[in-house]
Design a protein around this nucleic acid. Structure first.
Ligand SMILES: [Zn+2]
Ligand SMILES: [Zn+2]
Ligand SMILES: [Zn+2]
Ligand SMILES: [Zn+2]
Lengths: 160, 160
DNA sequence: AATACAATGTTATAACATTGCATTTCTTAT
DNA sequence: ATAAGAAATGCAATGTTATAACATTGTATT
């Protein structure tokens, strides 16, 4: 029962997510992985965006500092970040988004707004336990910590 | 090019699914839409597949009978079928699948097996009501009748 | 016949993602 | 310190998924 871990709002202003980045770097270290410069830069771009971001938009931004960057540059960094649980991919819309949660003890619900691409990551015990029961009854096993749902965000619900 | 999707069941027998196709055709007609030859053929291909199917695999199959078919041929047919509630898109894996339900009074859960591309469409009141509550609490509104979940199917759970 | 409209044909391109290999950078054992 | 090996990156090409833009066909209405 009970409510979700509160949303962490991301300040859209360009600025230092230094603390979060340093935490992420430390977390990678403890797992024997390393958050290199490129990976850290990509993660920072994700932190700065309150909405999901497209891979080629990330590429365009990274190119400003690294003109040689190419699609693999971005996709490799994203793969790494996803492996490390620092980012998620929203498959329906080919969007990537930073994870704002410390851990995924509970799989996350991603509410993706079809109007504005806003992404809200929720952790809802009630939904997930209902889901687990249904899956188990059907003989399936949840494989990904990510459940995507297309849902208008509060802003876009209002702007009707 | 290629489908790595194993062709497990449902040997493609011409003329099968006639009853379901006729029903679909009638349903379209009552809505003022028409299930034309191309659309019907694409729907039949979807009916024949127990797994989700990729658009370009459909294209390859349709080309056997209609050599002139091109990507728009398929995507238009798929758009139509989805509009009419006769098919669904699994965004995470770029798969298309026939709808096996008469209606969508309750939004569906799609269990997509990441190993074999098998798709199971469930309608679970308990999950959906938990979900509705959470969404409402967060100020969101469910927009799509489709919730995708990556979950190993019973077969692939067993074959570990 | 002229008009209107839905569907389809056709060509091209946009958008998204991966492969393969060469090179560089980082670790680690000696 | 150095050499060997692993990890990461640069780079070119290719593969995959989806849509844009415009032309044509078929059918119904006027
Ligand atoms: Zn997360
Ligand atoms: Zn929105
Ligand atoms: Zn359905
Ligand atoms: Zn499976």
């Amino acid at each position: 029962m009970n409510s979700s871990i509160p949303d962490i709002q991301c300040p859209p202003t360009a600025g230092s997510h230094t603390a979060a980045l340093d935490l992420a770097e430390a977390a990678c270290r403890t797992r024997g992985a390393s958050l290199t410069a490129i990976r850290r830069e990509v993660l920072e771009l994700l932190y700065r965006s309150p909405t999901g971001v497209k891979a080629y938009d990330l590429l365009a931004q990274i190119k400003e500092a690294r003109p040689g960057a190419s699609p693999p540059t971005i996709y490799r960094a994203l793969d790494f970040l996803i492996e490390q649980g620092l980012a998620h991919k929203i498959g329906r819309m080919n969007l990537f988004v930073a994870c704002r949660h410390a851990s995924h003890q509970i799989p996350s619900l991603f509410l993706v707004c079809p109007k504005c691409s806003g992404v809200t990551e929720l952790q809802e015990q009630s939904v997930m336990s209902a889901l687990s029961n249904s899956l188990a009854a059907a003989g399936h096993r949840l494989e990904s910590p990510e459940v995507e749902i297309s849902a208008l965000c509060p802003m876009c619900v209002g702007a009707r």
